[in-house]
Simulated scan of single mutants.
Amino acid sequence: MTGRVAVFAPSPQLTVTIEELDGAPDIHIHAGGQGVWQSRMIESLGAEVVLCAALGGETGQVLRQLIGVELKARDVAARNGGYVHDRRAGGRDQVVRMAADPLSRHELDDLYEITLVEALNAGVVVLSGPAEHDEPVPDSVYERLTKDLGGNGCRVVVDLSGARLAAALAGGPTVVKVSHEELVGDGLAESDALPDLVKGCRELASCGARAVVVSRAADETLALIDGTLYLVEVPALSPVDTHGGGDSMTAGLAAGLALGGSIEDSLELGAAAGAVNVTRHGLGTGSGDVVRQLVERVRLKPWEDA
């Protein structure tokens, strides 16, 4: 095992958050997006990580300084997206959002090659999506990457929804991570009732995936691993911000596989990482030491559906 994970994040975002400190505005500027948050948690859990991305425009120049993990980037003309959120009232009020530009054909080809090389060297890859409604790369890229990497011995973990998920499923991933809202929203489950989610799990697994993991917000995570159903019980912790819990779970799944764990062991690590993340204000954050302590308290409970 290499202990290394490649993360495909085609277009990270520049995030600006306005908070309040001692009665005055307090501005925070970070690199964000699903793949960035996952990469941070993977590294916290003791695995090496390399982020494969395209960076362009003024936003891309700033992102290069902020990403904070090993980066393999293609410099592009397409601008990275970004947003400004005002959190002074306690919520996430969006002030402005700039969508990412689509990559040109040559930019896309080069990013694809970078990802192939890094993922094959790592042996485990996470395919993450850009921001909702952004389309820097065509959906077909996810099918090609899943097929090409999986066909050459790389274990592919996908955390996607909608057309991107459908494309990745056609390529045959190793592990599929979705939320119950995504499963219902994509028409793969009739409702968020457990029997309906189980049917959705089985449909997803028909693509050849060894594991399908469905996070269910405050309810126990549902998992189908090699045909066996589990409910995942985690220690009760007081949530601060539920954003990013699913991304941390995906990071734990990938890190566990890279570090030599079974899918079951990796799911326990992912569940603990997700539980820790929701106790913090930052996305993709949490101490690896705390996560490893909580792993001992995670339980996979076999569940028989009717």
Rank of each mutant, 00 (worst) to 15 (best):
L111F: 10
R155C: 04
K147T: 11
G32V: 00
P25D: 09
V175E: 04
P136T: 03
E118P: 03
A170R: 15
L71I: 08
D247K: 05
L51N: 12
S128Y: 08
E182K: 08
D265R: 07
T17C: 05
C52Y: 13
L165N: 09
I114V: 14
G153A: 08
G162N: 11
T228P: 04
G256V: 05
A166Q: 14
A119Y: 03
E107Y: 06
A167M: 11
V76Y: 01
G57H: 05
L294C: 09
G81M: 01
I29A: 09
D196N: 11
K72I: 01
P25R: 05
S140L: 14
A163R: 12
Q65H: 09
L224P: 05
E143H: 10
A167Y: 09
T228M: 10
D26M: 07
V157G: 03
D26L: 11
V298A: 13
V198M: 14
V16K: 02
G35I: 10
I225Q: 02
L120E: 10
T279D: 13
E190W: 00
G270D: 02
V84A: 05
G57M: 01
D110R: 11
E203D: 15
P302N: 08
L111G: 07
V291H: 08
H106P: 00
R64H: 09
V276R: 11
R280V: 06
A131G: 12
G274F: 04
E203S: 15
G227K: 06
A254G: 06
D196T: 10
R202G: 13
G284C: 11
A53E: 13
E118K: 07
G270M: 04
G81A: 02
S161P: 00
G33D: 08
